[in-house]
Design a binder for these strands. Structure first.
Lengths: 218, 218
DNA sequence: AATAATTTTTAGATTAGTCTAAAAATAAAT
DNA sequence: ATTTATTTTTAGACTAATCTAAAAATTATT
């Protein structure tokens, strides 16, 4: 059985693992978890004992298959709860994270199965992120950043890279929602901004926006 | 801010407070929480410092108004989650307790308000217990034990005193549900059993059953 | 009222998770 | 290839929550 703290470490290492290919460094984990490197060293020793990850002094860590499954399960719970908060309780998508951060630690497989069914077996959370299945498998997402599209490309908005409240609120203000169709009218090479058309309105978004919005081409 | 452990102590003291009139003893708390008396002494000192309760050595404890409000809030959360589990997720009433025990510690007033609304502002949980309101007030329940009724009394089943899975399953088997009308046909003075009629069926229940089922007379 | 039994508290130890400060190892820069 | 800078680990300490065992206070019993 994993403690709350252990679960938070595992989840964060899992998120870092997606990008990195070598071992996850002690400092990277410490930054993400707002803690000190020495605390991380202590904890990863414990997690290595529990066969959650592989740890060699000074070489960083990598999750074992067991660790990856455990992590995917926590992520699954987090994202299902986010769907619940938005779909059923009318939370907006920029205010669900902190609550889901607590709910993800509730231990009851039955609860999650029933919640999943109640929500209609959703595939993605309110930010467009894929929800891992019961067995901890994550379906690969075929998605590009808006900035990677070229003139006349058309796609569906499927997710955000940055899920900070500020960014989500910006999207709300511009009436950009997940599931929405977006067409690239033109690109401005000078500053990387993109002129898009969505819902019959045409406007420009900055490079910062374009590099944080995932699109699935159609 | 209260820790998880503190919340569990407060909740248990609150439940014990309903029955007792003098201070709640260290041992009583230790029994309920499956812990040692020495641990209880340590904790109640801490809770006294936090103004949650009044503590005098060897005299037991009593909750302050602040402590009572905090406790009622935890109980409110516990019971609202139980309603959610039964009404929305199709849990049966004998399997919700352990999950609710975890969910009651989630900290988010907004979540509870929205959950309350989503559930249609229920007044009682699946076991018939009154749900404290937002301010921590509990409406007095006018209810008697089935064993206190006399021949020809008619009432509605409103709650259970013992909410163990075994008892709840017994009630399910006998098709006795909350909200159901029950008439006392006769009583057997010898063993305290009661002959009742409900849903056009007439049968006898033992004294043990009759002293654990709450009825509201009509 | 004195003694016995029980309850409660204290004292000291333990575990999980964290921290600071110093030491050791690795990586970067001259 | 040394030296310097950075990262990581170790050593020792702290807090929260618990425990055991012994001491102190209260309650019950003769």
């Amino acid at each position: 059985m994993l403690t709350l703290s252990e679960e938070n470490y595992i989840k964060e290492i899992y998120h870092l693992d997606v990008v990195a290919d070598k071992g996850i460094s002690t400092n990277a984990i410490a930054n993400k978890l707002q803690t000190k490197a020495s605390s991380v060293t202590d904890m990863i020793k414990k997690l290595a004992d529990k066969k959650v990850l592989i740890y060699k002094k000074y070489q960083g860590v990598t999750l074992t298959d067991f660790g990856k499954k455990a992590a995917a399960n926590i992520v699954r719970k987090h994202r299902l709860w986010e769907v619940f908060l938005v779909d059923k309780l009318q939370f907006s998508w920029d205010e669900v994270h902190d609550v889901a951060e607590q709910l993800e630690h509730i231990k009851s497989p039955k609860l999650i199965d029933k919640l999943d069914a109640f929500l209609g077996f959703p595939k993605r959370d309110p930010h467009g992120d894929i929800i891992p299945d019961k067995k901890g498998n994550v379906q690969a997402q075929e998605q590009l950043l808006l900035s990677a599209l070229i003139k006349d490309d058309i796609g569906i908005c499927v997710g955000v890279k940055d899920s900070s409240a500020a960014f989500l609120q910006y999207l709300d203000k511009q009436k950009i929602a997940l599931g929405q169709e977006i067409k690239v009218i033109d690109k401005e090479p000078f500053d990387g901004s993109v002129i898009i058309k969505t819902q019959n309105k045409q406007f420009s978004v900055s490079q910062k926006i374009a590099t944080n919005l995932y699109i699935q081409k159609i």
